[in-house]
């Protein structure tokens, strides 16, 4: 339970995933369920794809028609609560996740894939690591994840 251990339930998770037709392209998932005074995801999106509105306590809503999966909101979210997901084919999903720990992974490495409860669930391939000045110390890691974990994978831990 989100309120007692920080793990959102399946219903909450699915509520933030788009319809299947959208997810063939990369889309932003905002795992931000509470009404907290915060809105950088919305103001940083160059495509106006995240709605919060005048009252900054409103939880963000993504317009999947407008979202291009560019990833800008991912490193602008102070809660590290946004990631990008795309269904690549029958075997793999591609994620872009925020990462603020050292050492950073290196392209081509295999790392453990972790779920929302902090358990290792699979192996993932690091496809790309970006950390520009603009990202202000929050790296974006692009990873290839076995498709069956598309609703479970959330982050990476230690190189294999």
């Amino acid at each position: 339970m989100l309120n007692t251990n920080g793990v959102p339930d399946k219903k909450q998770i699915f509520s933030r995933f788009p319809d299947k037709k959208y997810i063939l392209k990369p889309k932003a998932i905002t795992e931000c369920y509470e009404e907290i005074p915060c809105n950088p995801c919305s103001t940083s999106c160059p495509f106006d794809a995240i709605y919060i509105g005048e009252d900054i306590n409103t939880a963000p809503i993504v317009d999947f028609e407008k979202c291009t999966g560019c990833g800008i909101c991912v490193y602008n979210c102070p809660g590290l609560a946004i990631f990008i997901v795309q269904e690549l084919d029958n075997e793999n999903a591609r994620f872009k996740i925020p990462y603020e720990l050292i050492p950073l992974p290196i392209k081509g490495e295999t790392w453990s894939g972790v779920n929302r409860a902090g358990e290792v669930i699979t192996k993932v391939l690091i496809e790309k690591v970006s950390l520009t000045e603009k990202q202000d110390k929050t790296a974006l890691i692009q990873v290839l994840v076995p498709i069956e974990f598309i609703n479970d994978f959330i982050t990476i831990r230690s190189k294999l």
Partner: peptide, 23 residues
């Protein structure tokens, strides 16, 4: 308390790193 006090986005961030929050 029986519930986490702070923003849940911070709690989730810790939990996925393997830290238990014992309410």
């Amino acid at each position: 308390s029986s519930e986490i006090g702070g923003y849940k986005v911070h709690a989730s961030k810790l939990k996925r790193l393997g830290v238990d929050i014992k309410t």
